[in-house]
Write a protein that binds this DNA or RNA. Structure first.
Lengths: 311, 311
DNA sequence: TCCAATTATTGCGCTATGCGCATTAATTTT
DNA sequence: AAAATTAATGCGCATAGCGCAATAATTGGA
């Protein structure tokens, strides 16, 4: 649907509303009166409602005008706020990074990767402060690509042309079950086991969701989700309270959030995604950044072996 | 403030966002490709941000573009809704949400609020599916304001003009300590106790961070943060591993994430923020939305009393 | 009742804006 | 290396929006 009025028209409308005069509105906006007339006429035509009952001597808003007023104000305010917000943010890209390392990381791997990596990092003598951008995978990729983060740990959501992905380990999609759930007794699950189960799925549009939808399509299972959530920690909270069964990456299992949950793998198909280091091409690394990266690599070797042992 | 872009420009922007191609956007809008280029150039100039990094072969949205997207969609939707509403006296913008309720909620209150609320909701006979937008507070506010969520549960990060906040309980900033931490033996903490402690703070720009910075300023304490994180669940993971002391809202205490942590209040000053229901003005509610809101209200009464008991 | 003052509307001509076409330049793909 | 694809730019044309001047309408005051 094409919008045939613009913000200037709304401006004129609100000026007339406030002054009850085309003449005074024109003064206010530094326009001629005839320009005001035309803008109002245009709006009236586009919106299909008379906005002002007017004589040469008096201007009265119609009911339609009164109903439009709040909307017009909201639209103009939205546009102004957008303009200001966009301008502010183009200013904000000045960083001071002398003693801070900014690491973007998907939250499911924080618990297992970060503390040991930090231990490594600190015992190597680095005192840098860590700004941790604990984001969803696509946000991690963005943060790295835009130079907001020094490096990232994530799955490949979208590989930006200026970034480099170094795989560290594979992260499998598993089912998180309440302890006493019927399926908790199975060794492994098939996707069709989920047919009659209340499900908690990752939000649409995420890589994990795509994987799950795909696996279900392949096994001719239809996902009957009852809850969609953005965060796997939220999913685990709901599972912990016995609410439903969640599908999420195994790396979530290493978190203290996962206490009390039972994790089960899937077969036919088993689906997983590589988790790795994401760095930006051509960026000189400070010694602290390099050291933290190395520490994450070493830490992830422990995860990888833990995951393989659990398989 | 004069708005120097119009709805056609936003239209073009969104078409490029969706197609990742000026060429395909042009096809979609029945314009020439050069008209698309010019509209995007105009927007970029007006907003002061590069919206697309582009070569002749590839178009990639910048972070700025991603931030603009929701706003652009909202502005266009607002204009379309206005046009339809003015033309159609029967007004109501038809939300077809009969079987899905979208709830935006800060994650710290998910564990305590949501499962009992869902129990209430289900036992009242509602079978609706729940799309849970477990976002940071400002994102919750945005989701509600933009109509993405039916309602929200959050602190007041920014009160949009079209939203209404109903306080449910106060959420106090507390210290989360590893079990064997020296400060774990104190009954209550003062802010100056943090002077020589490794700190995990919420990210800059969040309401919680502001509260903390303010409290420290008042008590003449300087925050020496070692880690900044976006999510309180991440903070608690780090605390659990003995990494440092985190400052976060008490509502995080009710989560299974908090197992093993010691929570301590602060005096002089005690700082807290109201958590409440956020709804959007003038939106007709489905019975399911209304029921879930009521269920959250009842659930929060339990939180509030639990919190007061813990004081 | 009539006249003067006020103000919305309309016609005209000018300027600004936005467009498509054709071309150029850049970037992939083959 | 050549071909294919696609964003950017120059040019000319059409349309939109404006102010000025004039017209028409409506009050208020005498």
């Amino acid at each position: 649907m094409r919008i045939n009025f613009d913000f200037n028209d709304l401006d004129a409308f609100l000026a007339v509303m406030e002054t009850n005069s085309f003449h005074h509105a024109a003064e206010r906006l530094n326009l001629s009166q005839s320009a005001i007339t035309r803008r109002i006429q245009k709006l009236e035509e586009v919106l299909g409602s008379t906005l002002f009952e007017r004589t040469t001597r008096a201007v009265k808003p119609t009911l339609a005008a009164k109903r439009l007023q709040a909307r017009a104000e909201a639209m103009l305010e939205g546009a102004q706020e957008t303009t200001l917000a966009m301008r502010d943010e183009s200013v904000v890209f000045a960083h001071q990074r002398s003693t801070v390392v900014t690491l973007a990381m998907i939250p499911t791997v924080v618990a297992s990767l970060l503390p040991p990596a930090l231990q490594n990092f600190r015992s190597a003598g680095f005192n840098a402060r860590i700004r941790l951008l604990d984001f969803a995978a696509n946000e991690v990729a963005e943060a790295v690509s835009q130079g907001e983060a020094d490096f990232g740990v994530c799955s490949i959501e979208s590989l930006e042309p200026n970034t480099l992905f170094e795989p560290l380990f594979d992260d499998q999609i598993v089912a998180a079950l309440p302890r006493h759930h019927a399926l908790a007794r199975s060794d492994e699950l098939s996707w069709s086991d989920l047919q009659s189960v209340e499900l908690i799925l990752p939000a649409r549009g995420t890589g994990n969701r795509l994987l799950i939808d795909e696996a279900m399509a392949r096994s001719r299972t239809t996902a009957h989700w009852t809850y969609e959530v953005n965060r796997s920690t939220t999913a685990m909270e709901l599972v912990n309270r016995g609410t439903a069964v969640a599908l999420l990456p195994r790396s979530a299992m290493n978190s203290t959030h996962s206490g009390g949950l039972i994790f089960k793998s899937f077969t036919n198909p088993t689906v997983s995604r590589p988790i790795g280091l994401l760095t930006r091409n051509g960026i000189a690394e400070t010694p602290a950044v390099k050291a933290l990266k190395d520490a994450v690599r070493r830490s992830s070797a422990n995860i990888a072996s833990f995951i393989h042992a659990a398989n």
